[in-house]
Design a protein around this nucleic acid. Structure first.
Length: 448
RNA sequence: GCCGCUAUCGUCCAGGGGACUAGGACGCCGCCCUCUCAUGGCGGAAACCCGGGUUCGAAUCCCGGUAGCGGUACCA
């Protein structure tokens, strides 16, 4: 089995594209086949080296590797020209100067359900000759047989007047030459498929190849939470935005795999290895799915909690660009859902307290300050400053004051972090160390 | 307009003629745990688009409607 992922480099890799890449990758790995990466860069305006690099960058981050390529479609133009000439020569294609307006006029004359047929001319764009009779049936692994009557199809333009080839032609020739057995791509390509199949048939007729048609599998499209096209206003819409939002690639793979595919039982958390083991085309759904970040966030939290401390530390250090995060990472692990959650939670321990007036007002009133002063003394005299000693010292304070735990812990928390939200209080104090803890408490007490 | 596709909780995924009183997950609500935030545990609300037909029996098959989506480029 040979599959391919063939994005057009129009910028960052969209989530829909990432899902397509993932499904191809899972299929190739499941079957022990090969994945070919091809860049569809025949649109010269939009295809830049920077955009190509963005695609590669996204794929690398997702840890989806490929076995061949990247093949740049534009680098294959000699072969495309050869194939184009052969189709022209064999009468399967013809030059025509017909414009979009001409096509429209033709249809008004012959009925809108009647496809455009042109006359061969000496110059002009190249159109593929679609037979008047019959139909092309796309055998789709996901959606079954789709029948496209030839009468409804326009003779598609396969090369511009200047000779440069168009998408539907290049794709067909490239898939053939790469010996692709399964074309797995988005549903937006279904109506392109009969055109590509017709190109393949013509290529075979003129002896360009003797390869069989690839099998097609069209994936249901991905939409935003509102059912509309996925875009930036839905939050993250590209792989790089997901990375920036602090998601883990393994969580993204797991989540994306669940969009348009199910393992068949009720499992939701599936490691990449399990995904590879269980993935089949047959289980792909036909319904469009919505990309909902809340579930991804939950899943990401699951994966973060599964990381060992060293690995979480490594990821956080890479994400934040900071060093020595081990201790803070350890005490934050259970509380964060994304890498981006880390600094808001634990940043104050690292960089000094923030300032939340509401928190101060609520917890550093007269009672709070008294509790804080008591806690300061207990902490100053604690025999040790590890988590257990801190807890023991503070328990004593609570007992003496006949207070509720929070009446001591919250003022302390506000004193050392400036806010009401932080990792566990004992862990936080231990991380700060006795000296820094006392310093912060004194500073809070000295205020106002 | 024309061509094509799709339709199960708010969302994702199961169920594909009787096992459905329709299952799991996220989210939501409630309770428990608890130093905040989380985590964890327990419980709850929540769906077969509508109308016909086939059948002893339909969420499941067929037809129609409706809705949504894709395509309809000398873009990919």
């Amino acid at each position: 089995m040979r599959v391919r992922f063939a994005p057009s480099p129009t910028g960052a890799l969209h989530i829909g594209g990432a899902r397509t890449a993932l499904f191809n990758w899972l299929l190739a790995r499941h079957e022990g086949g090969e994945l070919v990466l091809r860049i569809e860069d025949t649109d010269r305006e939009r295809s830049t080296p920077e955009n190509v690099e963005q695609i590669l960058d996204a794929l690398r981050w997702l840890e989806l590797d490929w076995d061949e390529g990247p093949i740049l479609q534009t680098e294959r133009s000699a072969r495309h020209q050869e194939a184009l000439a052969a189709l022209l020569e064999g009468g399967h294609a013809y030059r025509s100067q017909a414009t979009a307006e001409d096509v429209k006029a033709y249809k008004e004359l012959h009925g809108s359900e009647r496809g455009f047929r042109g006359e061969a001319e000496a110059e002009g764009a190249v159109r593929l000759r679609v037979p008047d009779e019959g139909a092309t049936v796309v055998q789709d692994v996901v959606r079954g047989a789709n029948r496209f009557e030839h009468v409804h199809m326009d003779d598609p333009v396969i090369a511009r007047a200047d000779g440069s080839v168009l998408y539907n032609f290049a794709v067909a020739i490239d898939d053939l030459d790469s010996a692709i057995t399964h074309v797995v791509r988005g549903e937006d390509h279904v109506s392109n498929t009969p055109k590509q199949l017709l190109v393949i048939e013509a290529a075979r007729a003129v002896g360009l190849t003797d390869a069989a048609d690839p099998l097609y599998a069209h994936l249901p499209l991905l939409h935003g939470p509102d059912g509309k096209k996925l875009s930036k206003r839905h939050g993250a819409a590209s792989v790089q935005e997901l990375r920036d939002a602090g998601y883990l690639p393994e969580a993204v793979r797991n989540y994306l795999a669940l969009l348009g595919w199910g393992a068949g039982d009720d499992s939701t958390v599936l490691s990449t290895q399990e995904l590879v083991d269980r993935f089949t085309l047959e289980r792909i759904s036909r319904n469009p799915a919505r990309f909902d970040e809340t579930k991804l966030k939950w899943l990401n939290g699951v994966y973060i909690r599964e990381l060992d401390e060293a690995e979480l530390t490594r990821r956080l250090e890479q994400y934040t660009g900071r060093a020595d995060l081990a201790e803070a990472a350890r005490i934050s692990q259970e509380k964060i859902h994304t890498l981006a959650d880390f600094m808001p939670l634990a940043g104050a321990l690292l960089d000094g307290p923030g300032d939340d007036p509401a928190a101060r007002e609520r917890w550093l009133d007269e009672d709070g300050r008294a509790a804080l002063a008591d806690a300061r003394e207990a902490l100053a005299q604690a025999p040790d400053f590890d988590q257990a000693s801190i807890e023991a010292a503070l328990s004593g304070v609570i007992e003496r004051r006949a207070a509720k735990p929070r009446q001591v812990y919250q003022p302390l928390r506000v004193a050392i972090t400036g806010t009401t939200i932080s990792p566990g209080i004992f862990e936080s104090l231990a991380l700060l160390g006795r000296e820094e803890t006392l310093r912060r408490i004194d500073a809070a007490l000295a205020r106002s």
